[in-house]
Structures are given as C-alpha cells and as structure tokens.
C-alpha cells in the first residue's frame, strides 16, 4: 500500500478525473444549464456521510474542546453544497459525548469553534490563511478542489471509479495534532508534500 498504489491512483485519478469532467461537460451541454440537483446532491450525500464518518476515525487533542460535552462542530466555509443532508446525517449523533452540529460560515473570522471545516472556497490565496488557522486550532480541513491536499489541506475528496476516494495530507494532519485511525489511513492516498 505504498508508492506503487499512490502512483497508480494518481495516474488513474488523472484520466478518471478527466472523464468525470468530460461527463459533466457533456451533461451540461446536453441539458440543464444548472447542475442536476440530485446528482450533485448524491455526490455530496456521500461526502456528507464521509464527513460524519471522519468524526469516528479521527481523534482531536483534548484542548480542541472547551468542555467535555462541548459540541463537535462541522463547519462549512463557503457555499453549502450539502443542503440539508449533512444536517440530517449528523442529527442527534454524539461522538465521545460531543454532540455533532453543523455550522456555516462565510468567512474565517466567523468561526468560533470548529473541528472539521469543509472548505468550499476556490480562492487559493485564502487557503494558506485557512490552513494556518486549522493547524493552530486543531481543525480538520476537508476539501474537494484540485490540489487541495497538496497545498496543505488535510483531506481531499476525489472521484475515482465512480466512487469518492480520499487523499490525506499526513503532514498537515500531524501538524494540527490530529490523529487519524490507521483504518482510515489504510483507505486513503497519503500525500506528504
């Protein structure tokens, strides 16, 4: 599970990603000018579930929470692609006594506490600021934009074989003093830039 696999995924990822884009393009050109609501939602349903799942496979340091029963916040920075789905997924769930809540932010400054941050901003210039924040605040940054993880984002969703795969930037994760379960690591592509 190593260099070979990573390179294979990368290669496949490349072409498969291209395929995806092509497909989207075709679909776009054929039909609705707006992206199909259910398709996108489907992809983000899965991502929403994954986001929820992350809470089970990642350990935050004790000082990430104010109190033992402080909520575990899943934040969305930028436009919310999940709709109500993420809310439904985490509804009523608790992790280690921390109830799960979803919060939406427009800007970084709005964030009070957050453990997972889904970054849905294209502005790469903003990313550095976000990642530094994350590192300091023990926030797990998740994105699905190209090079997200290469640039310092911790987890990136990327499509492969009609599935959502995960790429983890282990350095960023470690820097933020977050522990990722080996079970999750095993599934993911590790990137250490």
């Amino acid at each position: 599970m190593s260099v070979l696999k990573i390179t294979k995924y990368l290669k496949a990822g490349r072409s498969k990603a291209n395929l995806w884009l092509m497909l989207v393009a075709v679909l776009l050109s054929f039909g609705a000018s707006a992206p199909r609501q259910d398709e996108i939602t489907k992809e983000y349903q899965v991502k929403a579930v994954f986001l929820y799942n992350f809470t089970q496979f990642i350990e935050w340091p004790p000082d990430a929470f104010a109190q033992p029963d402080a909520p575990l916040v899943i934040g969305i920075l930028g436009p919310d692609p999940f709709g109500k789905y993420l809310d439904e997924t985490v509804q009523g769930e608790k992790i280690d006594g921390h109830p799960l809540v979803v919060q939406r932010f427009h800007t970084l400054a709005e964030i009070a506490h957050c453990q997972i941050l889904f970054v849905n901003r294209d502005e790469k210039s903003e990313w550095k600021q976000i990642f530094d924040y994350a590192k300091a605040q023990h926030v797990l940054t998740v994105g699905d934009v190209t090079n997200f993880s290469k640039q310092g984002g911790m987890i990136r969703f990327f499509p492969e074989d009609n599935k959502i795969r995960i790429r983890i930037n282990l350095t960023s994760v470690k820097n933020a003093e977050l522990k990722v379960s080996s079970k999750l690591l095993r599934l993911a592509e590790i990137v250490e830039p």
């Binding site: 899965v46 994954f50 799942n53 496979f57 599935k163 959502i164 079970k183 999750l184 095993r186 599934l187």
Partner: peptide, 15 residues
Amino acid sequence: ATNSTAALAFDDSTA
C-alpha cells in the same frame, strides 16, 4: 469487523 469499519464506512470495497 473492526478492521473493516472504515472500509465499509468509506465505501472502499477494494480495501
């Protein structure tokens, strides 16, 4: 089962 939770959670049938 314990080892397979992640794979199942993250829909990774290969793993």
